[in-house]
Write a protein that binds this DNA or RNA. Structure first.
Length: 577
RNA sequence: CGGGGUGUAGCGCAGCCCGGUAGCGCGUUUGCUUCGGGAGCAAAAGGUCGCGAGUUCAAAUCUCGCCACCCCGACCA
């Protein structure tokens, strides 16, 4: 591709509305242009990177028996009513009416459409298993789009759906996709991890996320250093390194004492001298469905040093969404006191206790009376917890639930997510098959997503330096970037053109900077765009029949004879594959 | 939706407090000189100051309303 004819435009200045490096670089390098909040046009170079990544994905999926299809972006309400998600998806599903006042939505995900598709054709166990996927634009009406392609409203996604006749088969399909995803992200040459994850609104019982590691990532991850365990903090079991010693202290009498103005655990710890991990925090959550007037409050107890993980509460209570904290007013109605002075004693609602509280004795809690706390409180004497469970947020330094050692924290960008769905959709949408005995059975399903456009930017977020992007060869828009340093020198342009043609004939993708610009401008732009190898073709070097080859990542330069360039690049690009 | 902030030339910003000629840098166009890490000089084009109303002789500037965008929280590939 010749720069002069390719609508490539870079900018020097950092755009004001881009916060993180990858977003700034994509805009500066002209890869993307914002059209509306969270909606972008992909420029020619971005599209090349996207297509390359798509083809890696296709290759790994096809080779494992998945079949590509393409489903509609506009979907009728009826299908979403069948699964119950027309309402359950909430506002992230963009709904609209056509001229006949019929309801439609833009595809945010395709479980409904794909289940409808297969149920029309799959009749027998002989038709299974099958795994269908597509690469397509999705629309989700995100609350707050940000970070460019990392959280867009419109984005390119690969979504795959597996259909099996039994659980064992579904697990095989799941493992196969796990292997495919591992191969896909490995081929990008980035640091990534797979972690245990929450299933969110998709549903299902088994789920793993793939993350590209980056400090600016939105997800907090915990992983053992020996690789024996990794999870999203959302679902990471919280285990104390030192198992709590059985406290054999004598139970003392409950005493009420005044704590005027003490509202936080910090205040209380300072005033009483009791360390935070021996204090008990009392919180209230609403377990009611969204939009319902009823609050259905529950009480949660954790140590003062811990935080409640609402997702664990969601899972424990079998809710669809993580419960929300009660407002101050609601807390007052439930407990009779404001949030700083609440405790479990005397409450008439379910009380869920975190494991960490269980071994405490003679502890301090709020008295459910403003300005007062109780000391020497003990559960199973002064109140009875409904259930004791793991409810706190795990953190760095906690015991590794999968083996030896402790957990370390990382930040990641979620680029892939695989779910075992079971029969959630096949049941509600009546997707059945006949087994060997002629009995109708619900089809076992799995679904598997990769954020294609997000991955492109996540790679940049992990691989860049102060000068620009550093593409891994696998998804680089071009392999080689030729800088024509003296565009008015016919000898220089002749050599550059010859190389351009010769390299392309060998399957090497070349961007030729043939603009009438000074060398410095071209060097800066080459670094910004991030193509793995750069050739400098200039009159100075051609005096000795030499040109320079520079590796983008290391900035290492080597001079080679013109004749040797093609062989050298073939060696660099393809030999170790 | 809650909290904070910003809207002035294609991009990045100043001007606003204290009302009176719309400015700077980058980019763009033309010419000359330059030519290996974002060149120099000269000239030029380009703006309903987010939108609407109000106050005033006079509003980018003061007041009110609306809109858009950005940042911090609850969702997700």
């Amino acid at each position: 591709m010749r720069w002069s004819k390719s609508h490539l435009h870079t900018i020097k200045e950092i755009p004001a509305d881009a916060e993180i490096a990858s977003h700034q670089l994509m805009i500066r390098a002209g890869y993307i242009k914002k059209v509306a909040q969270g909606i972008f046009t992909y420029g020619p170079l971005a599209l090349r990177a996207i297509r390359k990544f798509e083809n890696i994905v296709r290759h790994e999926l096809n080779s494992r028996g998945a079949v590509e299809v393409l489903m509609p972006m506009v979907q009728p309400r009826e299908l979403w009513d069948e699964s119950g998600r027309w309402n359950a998806m909430g506002k992230s599903l963009l709904k609209f009416k056509n001229r006949l006042e019929q309801d439609f939505c833009l595809g945010a995900t395709h479980e409904e459409v794909v289940t409808d598709y297969i149920r029309r054709d799959v009749k027998s166990y002989r038709d299974l298993p099958v795994n269908l996927y597509q690469i397509q634009t999705k629309y989700r009406d995100e609350i707050r789009p940000r970070f460019g392609l990392l959280r867009g409203r419109e984005f390119i996604m690969k979504d795959a759906y597996s259909f099996d006749s039994d659980v064992a088969g579904a697990h095989r399909s799941y493992r196969l996709m796990f292997e495919a995803y591992t191969a896909i992200f490995k081929s990008l040459g980035v640091h990534f991890v797979s972690v245990r994850a929450d299933t969110g609104s998709i549903g299902g019982t088994m789920s793993e996320e793939f993350h590209i590691l980056a400090d600016s990532g939105e997800d907090a991850l915990l992983a053992a250093e020996d690789g024996s365990f990794a999870a999203n903090v959302e679902v990471c079991p919280a285990l104390d390194v030192e198992p709590p010693v059985t406290n054999t202290a004598q139970l003392k009498e409950v005493e009420k004492f005044a704590t005027p103005g003490l509202k936080t655990i910090d205040d209380l710890s300072k005033a009483t001298g009791v360390p935070k991990h021996e204090l008990v925090k009392t919180l209230f959550y609403s377990t009611a469905e969204e939009g319902s007037k009823d609050v259905k409050p529950v009480c949660v107890l954790v140590r003062g040093s811990d935080e409640v993980n609402p997702i664990k509460l969601k899972i424990l209570l079998g809710l669809n969404e993580p419960p929300l904290l009660l407002t101050e007013k609601e807390v007052r109605e439930v407990s009779g006191a404001s949030p700083g002075s609440c405790g479990p004693v005397g409450l008439k609602i379910p009380i869920y206790m975190d494991n960490g509280v269980f071994n405490l004795k003679n502890y301090i809690v709020g008295a459910n009376e403003d300005g007062f706390h109780l000391k020497n409180v003990n559960h199973n004497r002064d109140y009875t917890p409904t259930e004791v469970a793991d409810l706190r947020v795990a953190r760095e330094g906690d015991k590794n639930p999968g083996g030896k050692g402790v957990l370390k924290s990382y930040r990641g960008i979620e680029v892939g997510h695989i779910f075992y769905l079971g029969t959630k959709y096949s049941k509600s949408m009546h997707a059945t098959y006949l087994n060997e005995k002629g009995e109708p059975k619900d089809i076992e399903m799995g679904c598997y997503g990769i954020g294609i456009s997000r991955t492109i930017q996540a790679v940049i977020e992990q691989l860049h330096d102060k000068d620009g992007i550093i593409w891994p060869t696998a998804i680089a828009p071009f392999h080689v970037h030729i800088c024509v340093l003296d565009p008015s020198d016919t000898n220089v342009t002749a050599v550059a053109d010859k190389l351009y043609n010769e390299l392309q004939s060998q399957g090497i993708e070349v961007l030729l900077d043939d603009r009438n610009e000074r060398p410095g401008v071209k060097f800066k732009d080459a670094d910004l765009l991030g193509v793995p190898y750069r050739l400098n073709v200039g009159s100075r070097g051609l005096q000795t029949n030499e040109i320079e080859i520079i590796e983008r990542q290391s900035k290492k330069m080597e001079k080679i004879k013109v004749d040797g360039v093609t062989a050298k690049l073939r060696d660099l690009l393809f030999s170790h594959a």
